Amino acid sequence: MSGLLKIVVFCLTFAVLASAQGADSVNLLIMIEDADKNSIPRNSQINKRVHASISQQLNQVADVYDETSLTLGNLKQSRKYRTDAELIDIARSITRPPIDLVVVLNTYASVTTNQYAKNARARVAAKILNPKSGQLLDNFEVQSPRTWSIPYACNKQSCILEEIGDEAKVLGDELGLVLAEKLNWLINGDTPVQKTTDDTLIVNDYYLEFDGFSPQDMANIEEYLLLFSGYISHRPTQQRHTRTTLLYRSTSGTAKLSRNILKLLEELTMRATINFYDNNFNVKRITFRGENPNRDIAEGW
């Protein structure tokens, strides 16, 4: 069988595998950024109500995890005034389960008092990030009518928190619905039903490091990388005689990409170990004494 025909058969095999395998779930973390001193601190009951409202909406689209539960025992809890950089670093540090997307929330509220009335206003902003690549995927914000009146006698902090919290919860419900629609599009495109593969519209950047593979090996491997479903582009970030690192851009999830790499090695009769962490795949060649590692792609077919 010619090398070209074998690649065609290989491509069809991947199409069958794609429909037979289950979908990757999207693991989502909702985090509150309060580095801006004008924003409401993350431990405020206002933010807790906003967080709960949005979590309820997004849980219909993705697997939403609780930050405290995942970081308890490893990271310092109840920190305030956290920046984007800290939030992304925390999301990247979580590996069980790995976090695919982060929704970052900012909540703002203010109360103004004059001689006869007390008015409040609130705003909640959110952005969707890919923590592995740092890519901004989308953003949106909702706000209350220009102002709304609260009881003039509402002077205690508990009263103000309750009044603003009620409005903030409504804003959280509204924002959650919008974010759910945006996430559904990113994950499923315009298909309203559950997908049968783990390809999404979310673009993932992977670093594929091939250790112990010759330039001829890499030429053969790259022919197959182009065939993987979800493929967008790739380019080398490091090339040495027996080590090549590729920046591989794809809409496939990690589980599917891992399966495809295993199938690729099987098709090329190459033995290797595969290690995965964060968004990095390390593929290390295993050779045996007397074995010729530079096998031609069409040899024996």
Results as ranks from 00 to 15, higher is better:
3 G>K: 14
5 L>C: 08
8 V>Y: 12
8 V>A: 07
10 F>I: 02
11 C>I: 11
13 T>W: 15
18 A>E: 13
26 V>I: 08
28 L>C: 05
29 L>I: 09
31 M>D: 06
32 I>P: 02
34 D>Y: 13
37 K>P: 12
39 S>F: 08
39 S>L: 09
40 I>G: 11
45 Q>L: 14
46 I>P: 06
49 R>P: 05
51 H>T: 12
53 S>V: 07
57 Q>I: 08
59 N>W: 09
60 Q>H: 14
61 V>F: 03
65 Y>S: 06
66 D>L: 06
66 D>W: 09
66 D>A: 06
67 E>R: 14
74 N>M: 13
77 Q>D: 11
78 S>I: 07
80 K>E: 15
82 R>L: 15
84 D>H: 11
88 I>W: 06
88 I>G: 00
92 R>M: 07
95 T>I: 15
99 I>H: 00
105 L>P: 01
106 N>Q: 13
113 T>C: 12
119 N>K: 15
123 R>G: 02
124 V>I: 14
126 A>K: 12
126 A>M: 12
126 A>V: 11
127 K>I: 10
133 S>D: 05
134 G>Q: 00
143 Q>C: 10
144 S>Y: 04
145 P>W: 10
145 P>I: 15
146 R>K: 14
146 R>W: 14
149 S>F: 10
151 P>N: 09
152 Y>N: 04
160 I>P: 00
162 E>R: 10
165 G>P: 00
166 D>L: 14
168 A>P: 01
169 K>D: 08
171 L>M: 06
174 E>R: 13
175 L>I: 10
175 L>S: 05
176 G>V: 08
177 L>E: 14
178 V>R: 15
179 L>S: 01
181 E>F: 01
187 I>R: 02
187 I>K: 00
187 I>M: 03
191 T>M: 04
205 D>C: 03
206 Y>V: 06
207 Y>K: 09
207 Y>F: 03
210 F>I: 00
210 F>V: 00
220 N>S: 14
221 I>A: 03
222 E>M: 13
223 E>Y: 14
224 Y>Q: 08
226 L>T: 11
232 I>G: 02
232 I>D: 09
232 I>N: 10
233 S>H: 08
236 P>H: 05
238 Q>G: 04
244 T>A: 08
246 L>A: 02
248 Y>P: 00
249 R>K: 13
252 S>Y: 05
253 G>Y: 03
257 L>M: 12
262 L>K: 14
262 L>I: 07
263 K>S: 07
268 L>M: 06
269 T>H: 15
270 M>P: 01
271 R>F: 12
274 I>M: 10
274 I>G: 03
275 N>G: 07
276 F>E: 09
277 Y>V: 10
278 D>Y: 15
287 T>A: 01
289 R>Y: 15
290 G>E: 13
293 P>C: 05
